[in-house]
């Protein structure tokens, strides 16, 4: 581990000034990912700036069924919040499907979306990785791809974003409130993360020094009938092979509206607009769900690799989406 300085400024604005001024500075939230990276040499900052207790730690009702979640709210608190459970069950379920109780107690709302890929090659400084060291090559391509992308990957990077919470946030049209050196801005959650393209070292659109202060959930009645389905090799404490966050509004056997996002399959939480489009006005039936999945997966490309690669994720995701929507429709009836 490379030695670093630690600072704890008086408030969020001071933290932003501190980090913005130093290209080798990073924020420390719950530390559930960064601390590992410090030990492994994946992250080698000169300066670590603690911010968790500088950020709002409340969940505020904005009226009409909208919520503002302070960036300092822990994943445990967020999952357990009565309004979240009632209005946005998909978010509560996504949070509870992630990590372990101990990690959820530490992890924060602002930090969770900024956790980095668990690609084994990214986390191993002895193997080339374009995300960790731009231009060094991608070891995952042709390697162990079970936990890698089938959507939106590039020839530079096939990593996936590991967060469960972020998948729910993407489905819920959340808005990210960001504090930067020049003031505050709001980023739609679906625009926060980016695809790897030629610059896989950049996970998000945040500029250096920008700090997430809160995430807003707009009111939407559709979300009250929502669910998160995470498919994984182990019953707990495992990252998703695929996951589906979905909300469904069915009237008289016809789908009025849908919100869908996928996890475990792309460099970002994958909002499935094409699937949503295909579902609107369709009959609430397995064939509609499968057609919606096929519409979204038309461009899916498996990553060949060890132990058969990850082609299985395409049928798995189709089947998982179908099952999730079927259950929601059943619940809706």
């Amino acid at each position: 581990m490379k030695p670093f300085d630690y600072r704890h400024p008086a408030d969020a604005a001071a933290a932003v000034r501190t980090v913005a001024a130093d290209p080798d500075a990073v924020y420390l939230g719950g530390g559930t990912n960064l601390v590992d990276h410090l030990k492994l040499g994946v992250a080698e900052p000169d300066l670590v700036v603690g911010v968790t207790d500088l950020l709002p730690a409340e969940i505020e009702e904005l009226g009409g069924g909208a919520l503002r979640i302070g960036a300092g709210v822990s994943n445990s608190e967020l999952a357990a919040h009565p309004r979240v459970r009632e209005w946005f069950p998909v978010l509560s379920q996504a949070l509870l499907s992630g990590a372990s109780g101990q990690l959820r107690n530490m992890a924060t709302t602002g930090g969770n979306p900024l956790q980095r890929t668990r690609c084994v090659y990214f986390q191993d400084v002895t193997t080339p990785c374009n995300k960790r060291t731009p231009g060094s090559g991608c070891s995952a391509i042709g390697g162990w791809t079970r936990y890698h992308a089938i959507l939106g990957a590039s020839d530079q990077c096939i990593a996936v974003h590991p967060s469960d919470m972020a998948v729910a946030m993407a489905a819920l049209d959340a808005q990210v409130r960001v504090l930067g050196p020049d003031g505050e801005r709001i980023i739609p959650f679906t625009d926060l993360h980016r695809l790897p393209g030629d610059t896989p070292e950049r996970d998000t659109v945040l500029e250096h020094g920008e700090l997430i202060t809160a995430i807003d959930l707009p009111a939407q009645t559709i979300a009250r009938r929502s669910a998160y389905r995470k498919v994984r090799d182990r019953a707990s404490y495992a990252f998703a092979l695929v996951s589906v966050a979905a909300a469904l509004d069915v009237k008289d056997g016809v789908i009025a509206d849908a919100r869908i996002a996928f996890g475990g399959v792309a460099h970002k939480p994958w909002r499935a607009h094409r699937a949503e489009e295909a579902l609107r006005g369709a009959a609430a039936s397995d064939s509609s769900y499968r057609a919606a999945a096929d519409a979204e997966l038309a461009d899916a490309r498996p990553a060949e690799g060890l132990e058969g690669g990850n082609a299985f994720k395409i049928p798995l995701l189709r089947r998982t989406l179908t099952a999730t929507l079927r259950d929601l429709a059943r619940e809706d009836a």
Binding site: R118, D124, T127, G143, R234, S236, Y237, F239, L306, E307
Partner: peptide, 26 residues
């Protein structure tokens, strides 16, 4: 399942997050 990458010659899932051992929930 220790995944030994034949290109590098090492086990790439070399931690307890990726080398899955049955947990309580299983």
């Amino acid at each position: 399942d220790s995944v030994l990458d034949p290109r590098t010659g090492h086990v790439v899932n070399h931690d307890l997050a990726e080398y899955h051992i049955t947990a309580n929930a299983d």
